[in-house]
Design a protein around this nucleic acid. Structure first.
Lengths: 131, 131
DNA sequence: CAGCATCCATTCAGATACTG
DNA sequence: CAGTATCTGAATGGATGCTG
């Protein structure tokens, strides 16, 4: 992304560009398919171990689960608790930060549920018309 | 994603799986880096033509701009108006649906601005600790 | 001006195999 | 059980050239 280094006035810069960059990065991360699904199941079940989460999130691969959980941990969205027993037992739960994020996302969730029909209609209309 | 066809009871299915799939798809779409930035500039400027949008969105390539605008049009988020003049003039503006989506997303935006600091701190702590 | 087509590098994600 | 490591095919996105 070479243009990022351009030093234009950036008319849209009504807020700190660093903030904006972070916002976009975070939104991209949070809106990630798996992250969202994981947040969902953690809200519902409170605390879950690795394999349980895998069960609850249908299509996820073990790789993506690990990866996503690590990122979420790094971002402070989940707490990872390792119980020093054998076989290993690791549990995950949302932090307050994670919960608050889920709440913030609620608006989008509601919007989608409310407008899903409209979007589908729009798509059908778009696809139907001659191109 | 083979597991999608699994017919497990899906304990997380407290809502219509079709809705959930759509929610995830839409959120993924909406949270797309470029879509978000484009919504932003359209909110700010009302109606813009192709090249203007390109100017306002620093790093975007012409390909991504076209692609993103098409998807947004298909989803009913923007209206595309072609003025039959030469040289061509095409203008884009948000639909009511698009505006309402932006509003819904506002919560996430606010969350990120409010918690950006926490996330950064968390990351720093995570990265700093011995592995 | 707006946008399509093409090529190419990079990234992503799934499958598979192995380990403390 | 909860990972890590590796390979590979698919998807993404940028750069470039062309056109109504």
């Amino acid at each position: 992304m070479s243009a990022l280094s351009d030093r234009k006035p950036d008319p849209a810069a009504d807020l700190d560009p660093r903030v904006e960059a972070m916002v976009n990065e975070l939104i991209g991360r949070v809106a990630d398919k798996w992250t969202l699904l994981i947040i969902e199941v953690l809200i519902e079940h409170g605390e879950l171990r690795f394999t349980r989460i895998a069960d609850q999130v249908p299509g996820i691969s073990q790789k993506m689960l690990t990866q996503t959980l690590r990122r979420m941990e790094r971002d402070g969205l989940v707490i990872r608790t390792v119980h020093p027993v054998v076989p290993p037992k690791v549990e995950y739960r949302l932090t307050d930060l994670g919960s608050s994020l889920a709440e913030a996302f609620c608006g989008v969730w509601v919007w989608v549920e409310a407008n899903l029909h409209r979007v589908e209609t729009s798509r059908a209309a778009f696809d139907a018309r001659p191109r």
